[in-house]
Amino acid sequence: MVAALAGSLRGFIRFFRDVMGEDAYRKYQAHHAASGCAGPVLTEREFWKDKMDRQDLVPGGRCC
């Protein structure tokens, strides 16, 4: 019972983090490595700045 509850809680936390975009940089790194991009990998700081700049250009894609 406790193990099932703990597993459910871990699943919820992972889902919440995915919804909030916390794993976006990790996904970017995996995509960059898998796709064979010629350019260098952005640092995490550069990645988030680029992501926020792109969201500011197209604000209709977000809720707030």
Rank of each mutant, 00 (worst) to 15 (best):
R17Q: 08
R17A: 08
R17P: 00
R17K: 14
R17M: 10
D18L: 13
V19Q: 07
V19E: 14
V19N: 05
M20H: 12
M20W: 14
M20C: 15
G21D: 09
G21N: 10
G21Q: 04
G21T: 09
E22S: 05
E22K: 09
D23W: 02
D23H: 10
D23E: 12
A24Q: 02
A24T: 02
A24D: 04
A24W: 00
Y25E: 03
Y25R: 05
Y25Q: 04
R26H: 14
R26L: 09
R26V: 11
R26D: 10
K27Q: 13
K27M: 05
K27F: 03
Y28C: 01
Y28T: 02
Y28E: 03
Y28P: 02
Q29R: 15
Q29I: 13
A30V: 11
A30C: 03
A30D: 11
H31Y: 11
H31T: 07
H31R: 15
H32Y: 06
H32L: 06
H32P: 04
A33P: 02
A34S: 14
A34I: 13
S35D: 10
S35T: 10
S35N: 11
S35L: 10
S35P: 01
S35M: 10
S35R: 10
G36T: 07
G36Y: 06
G36V: 07
C37S: 13
C37F: 08
C37G: 04
C37H: 11
C37L: 06
A38R: 11
A38K: 05
A38Q: 08
G39D: 15
G39F: 12
G39Q: 15
P40M: 02
P40C: 08
P40V: 05
P40Q: 12
P40D: 12
P40R: 08
P40W: 04
V41A: 13
V41R: 08
L42F: 03
L42W: 06
E44F: 03
E44V: 09
R45G: 06
R45I: 06
R45H: 08
R45A: 13
E46R: 05
E46G: 11
E46L: 02
E46M: 06
F47K: 00
F47H: 02
K49A: 07
K49S: 06
D50I: 00
D50M: 09
D50P: 00
K51M: 08
K51T: 04
K51W: 02
K51L: 14
M52R: 11
D53R: 01
D53K: 01
D53E: 15
D53L: 03
R54G: 04
R54Q: 07
R54K: 12
Q55L: 07
D56P: 00
D56E: 15
D56K: 09
D56W: 12
D56G: 04
L57I: 09
L57T: 05
V58E: 14
V58S: 07
P59K: 01
P59L: 02
G60Y: 14
G60N: 14
G60K: 09
G60T: 10
